[in-house]
Each structure stands twice: as C-alpha cells, then as structure tokens.
C-alpha cells in the first residue's frame, strides 16, 4: 500500500495529539497500517507539539524534512515554521487564527504578516487550504474542537487513506462523550470549509 505522510504542528494545548489519535483509530477501523510519533515534551507549557502520522507500508514513525505529503497546521506561524517538512507536491492545510508566542509580547521577535505568510506557503507548495478554523470551532460550540475542524478539512482533501465515515466513528469512540456532538459538527464544518476552498 502506498505510503502517505502527514505532519501535524500545533501549540501545546490545541489538541493535536487527540487529532492524530482519532486518525490512528480510524485507520485501525479500516485495517490500514498506521504508525505515529509525537513529541510532546512540555506540551502543556506552551511549546510546539509536532506529530507525524504515516499510513501504509512503512516502518518509520517519523517524517524527514521535505517528505510530508500533507502539512496540517493548527497555528499559522507554526505552519510556516514547519515548511521545511514540505516539498513542491505537499498540500498544506492551515488554521489562520494566530496565537502569538509570549516572546512577541516581550518584544523578542515579530509575528509574521498573515497575508505574506499565506503567500509564502502557497508559492512553495502544491496547494494550500487556509481558513479561520478557530471561528468554526466556536461555531460548532467549543473552541477546543479546533482539532476536529482541521481533521474535517484534512479528510476532505482525500489524500489520507481514511474515510470520513471511519473518522467520525473514531470521533465517537475516542473523544469525550459530552463533546461528541460538537466534535462531529466541528468535523463537518471543517470538511465543508475545505470543500469551499477547493
């Protein structure tokens, strides 16, 4: 089976580990080989959290620079920072709602211009889907459902070998009961947003 490589980058607390877990569970439902890795050292202290999901026949659980098929970014400047994982064929999906690091607040660095940021990503990759996923999460009923919104748009692109059906099933079994409806709604909103962006 063809290998598909996905990098997810987020800021600690944005819930990307749950997103990759849902993808993994969806792959398990469909009997698709999957391997994942995550670096969550000090995730809760506001650092960057990166996870890699590799579908198909590969043994490696990490993804080298230039080798991601899809880059899914939960925060625009982090998406840009992870551009080295991409190549000219990579599809990038990114939330556009910024979460500036505290270094910006204390004057140690400037947050990139959002239009410029999108232009750069678009220039260097095959395709970019960019939208305010945070707003859609709020619309779904909880700002924490950002991860599910982004999963929705990821699945809409059709690049990952898991179906929307299975991802929704996995959302039902592996996210908190009280949030399942919101999460499904968020997933669907993200799915539609990506369809519109196409």
């Amino acid at each position: 089976m063809e290998t598909k490589r996905l990098i997810i980058v987020a800021v600690g607390g944005q819930g990307n580990l749950l997103a990759s877990k849902v993808l993994g569970e969806a792959a398990l439902l469909a009997d698709i080989p999957v391997r994942m890795s995550e670096i969550h050292g000090m995730a809760q202290r506001g650092g960057v959290v990166e996870s890699a999901v590799v579908f198909g026949d590969a043994e490696s659980t990490i993804i080298s620079d230039g080798e991601a098929d899809v880059l899914l970014g939960f925060e625009p400047s982090e998406t840009l920072r992870a551009l080295n994982k991409c190549n000219a064929e990579t599809v990038v999906i990114t939330n556009t709602a910024p979460l500036p690091p505290f270094t910006v607040a204390i004057g140690k660095g400037t947050y990139p211009d959002l239009n410029e940021l999108q232009k750069l990503i678009r220039q260097k990759t095959a395709r970019m889907v960019a939208f305010d996923a945070q707003a859609l999460a709020k619309q779904a009923g909880n700002f924490m459902s950002l991860n599910m919104v982004l999963l929705g748009s990821l699945i809409q692109t059709g690049i990952m070998p898991v179906s929307a059906e299975n991802v929704k099933k996995a959302i039902r079994t592996s996210t908190k009961k009280a949030f399942v409806d919101i999460n499904i709604k968020a997933f669907e909103l993200g799915f539609e947003a990506a369809a519109k962006a196409a």
Partner: peptide, 21 residues
C-alpha cells in the same frame, strides 16, 4: 533526495519555547 523548499525568503519567526504556565 526530496527537494526541500527554499525558505531563504521566509521571515525570521518568533521563537516559541516552552514557558512556565
């Protein structure tokens, strides 16, 4: 090898080190 994008024109991004909550 895979061709990595030329990122020389990407502006310097602010660091995001882990920090005390």
């Amino acid at each position: 090898p895979a061709v990595k994008p030329d990122i020389s024109d990407v502006p310097e991004l602010p660091q995001r080190p882990p920090t005390l909550c």
